[in-house]
Amino acid sequence: MPQPPPRQPQDPQIDEQDILRAMREIPGYLDITPEDFRQVYARAYAHALERVRRGLPAERVMTREAAAVAVDTPLTEVARIMAQRRVSGVPVLQGGRVVGLISEKDFLDAMGAQGGRHFMEVVAQCLGQGPCLAAPLRAATAGELMSAPAVVAGPETSTSEIAEIMGQKGINRVPVVDSQGRLLGIVSRADLLRAGGPA
């Protein structure tokens, strides 16, 4: 007789009465004892948890044809692209490779003259009589503002790993690159949520 699987906190809390009730709901003779079923169920549940914990490979959940900019793209153009594509961050490419990432947060940091990192702080300053905080950025390029080096993932990196990276680094999107560093797509927190994995 196989050993029952070790009890874990996340074990499904079903008892024999639940199983008997379920078996009664299914017409016809079921050729299995409630205890056999409980063991099958507990093991299947553990396998399902393991599968979900492992997650999907990045290439299955990433957004393809992700917006991207070049290191020499002017920031005005970067801002326009981000607005147009409705994304809060884009990878920065140099020679086809991902070298950094620009996000709304990078813009805010650069504009937060008073050390403010909150969007409303920038709004408050602009509504006041202060100078336009965005003005100094007009002449700058993506390469000057980007966060580098970029935190990237491979196409096989699992969603659970990506979720962990996002949590650790406090970032919201991870570009997916091939072995040459070329952009394949991007995984955002929204992509993780859609995949139903841990986010």
């Binding site: 024999e16 008997l20 017409p27 003779y29 004892t33 205890e35």
Partner: peptide, 9 residues
């Protein structure tokens, strides 16, 4: 270790 499965209708 277990009990008899339910009877049928």
């Amino acid at each position: 270790a277990s009990q008899s499965p339910p009877g049928v209708g």
